[in-house]
């Protein structure tokens, strides 16, 4: 059980680091937003991993609920970031067309 938790959680940490890397080195907004979502998904993986209690026991519901909450928060933030980005792009295209 510990091995499964460790492998799944470590994969989550890897996702976190990869997302962080992509966020820091890539310029385009869309890549940054996707990177942040990957970073978040990595943290959610860690929560899911520690909820696992083997094949016989039911999983810990608390981390599951935290991840559900976290997903909604991530969706909301992503939506706002995308709209701000679209607004900015509109403004820049207008500047260029003048």
């Amino acid at each position: 059980m510990l091995t499964a938790q460790f492998l799944y959680g470590a994969a989550g940490l890897m996702l976190f680091v990869l997302g962080l890397w992509s966020f820091l080195v890539h310029e385009p907004l869309l890549r940054k937003i996707i990177a942040l979502n990957i970073t978040g998904a990595g943290v959610f993986h860690v929560f899911i991993a520690i909820a696992y209690r083997g094949d016989t026991a039911p999983p810990d519901p608390v981390p599951h609920a935290l991840v559900l909450t976290g997903i909604v928060v991530a969706v909301s933030a992503t939506a706002l970031a995308l709209m701000l980005g679209a607004r900015l792009q509109d403004a820049e295209e207008e500047d260029q067309s003048r």
Binding site: L2, F6, G9, A10, L13, M14, V17, L20, I50, V62
Partner: peptide
Amino acid sequence: SLAVLGAALTWLYFIALSAGAAPRLA
């Protein structure tokens, strides 16, 4: 530096897992 961070986090995560907190709140 992020690779180092990832390795350190994985190691500490392992220690945290084996700290005996299970079954946590389940």
